[in-house]
């Protein structure tokens, strides 16, 4: 494995000018990122934003067209094996043999590394002790994902990469995965996680970057991103069925109104002043709305504001 000296200070990950084009699409168009040691960093964006391609280049699975990647002070060109020994990776699909037992999978993957964590410790960490002798194929979706996280931790890694670990899971399974990610942070690991769930990013991430069309369009702490919006509140009018065209109403109200599926959204700095005027105008125009909500802006609104699109479009 070579005797590469591994620097213990500096950022966990530093990326400069990362680019990758495929025959039909530019997947990553110049990405700069820096992730500090010990933080949970989120990479957010809709499907096709370039998150997974970015992650695959960082993990050494895809060669970049241009740009620099430095992980834990190492580069792929010089210290590929050293990086592989010190990172843990969970890919979008678990891709194990159907008939391998949970304990066997952990033992097998552990054997690929110079040092491996005890299998029983990993089983306890992801709460799969009573599934230790079950075949992989018999596990539920949430259990399979927990096993994937345990496999990503098998070598006691300094940095962990999680690619949409909770996609397709029910809320309870998602919460249990969040606990494992928080445990990783508590153990001092750096975590880079991609997701398209805004509440997940808000719950887990110290900092995050929002990607769209292969570029980072905003980055910072979740609170600072929301603060940057300068529109802390959103008033929502919900309709039964899809919402009508708000153009005429918007003109009458003198405020921008956005239509989102079954509701209108009116971003505002001052909901207290807007609300009476809004209700009065709606009454006069006979708008057939069902309910009114006032909520604080979320990362979802940050994304909407930056791209004009919803995250899950």
């Amino acid at each position: 494995m070579g005797g590469t000296e591994v620097p213990m200070s500096g950022p966990a990950l530093r990326i400069r000018g990362l680019r990758k084009a495929f025959p039909k699409v530019v997947a990553v168009a110049g990405v700069d990122l820096e992730v500090a040691r010990g933080e949970v960093f989120g990479l957010l964006g809709p499907n096709g934003a370039g998150k997974t391609t970015t992650l695959e280049m960082i993990e050494g699975l895809t060669a970049p067209d241009a740009g620099e990647i430095e992980i834990l002070g190492c580069t792929w060109a010089r210290d590929g094996q050293a990086i592989r020994s010190r990172i843990g990776v969970q890919l979008q699909s678990t891709s194990l043999f159907n008939k391998i037992r949970v304990r066997e999978a952990l033992d097998l993957y552990g054997s690929y590394y110079p040092k491996a964590r005890p299998t029983d410790e990993l089983l306890a960490l992801v709460q799969l002790q009573d599934k230790a002798d079950a075949y992989h194929i018999t596990l539920s979706g949430g259990q399979q994902q927990r096993l994937a996280l345990a496999l990503a931790l098998v070598n006691d890694p300094d940095m962990v990469f999680l690619d949409e670990p909770t996609t397709g899971l029910d809320p309870q399974a998602r919460r249990s995965l969040w606990d494992i990610v928080r445990r990783m942070k508590a153990e001092g690991r750096t975590v880079l996680i991609t997701t398209h769930y805004m509440e997940e990013a808000e719950a887990l991430c110290d900092r995050l970057a929002i990607m769209d069309h292969g570029q980072v369009i905003a980055s910072g702490t979740p609170a600072s991103l929301i603060a940057q919006l300068a529109i802390p509140s959103v008033v929502e009018l919900t309709f039964e069925g899809s919402a009508p065209d708000p153009a005429a109403f918007s003109a009458r109200l003198g405020e921008p109104v956005e239509r989102r599926g079954e509701r209108w959204e009116i971003p505002t700095r001052d909901p207290k002043a807007l609300l009476p005027r809004l209700l009065e105008t709606a009454e006069i125009a006979a708008v057939p709305y069902q309910q009114v909500h006032v909520r604080r802006a979320t990362l979802e609104d940050v994304f909407l504001h930056q791209t004009g699109r919803s995250l899950r479009d």
Binding site: L61, R84, L91, Q92, S95, L96, Y109, Y112, Y113
Partner: peptide, 12 residues
């Protein structure tokens, strides 16, 4: 199914 990719991120 990505089994090779999962192996490729290990030092094996």
């Amino acid at each position: 199914k990505g089994k090779f990719r999962r192996l490729a991120v290990t030092p094996l």
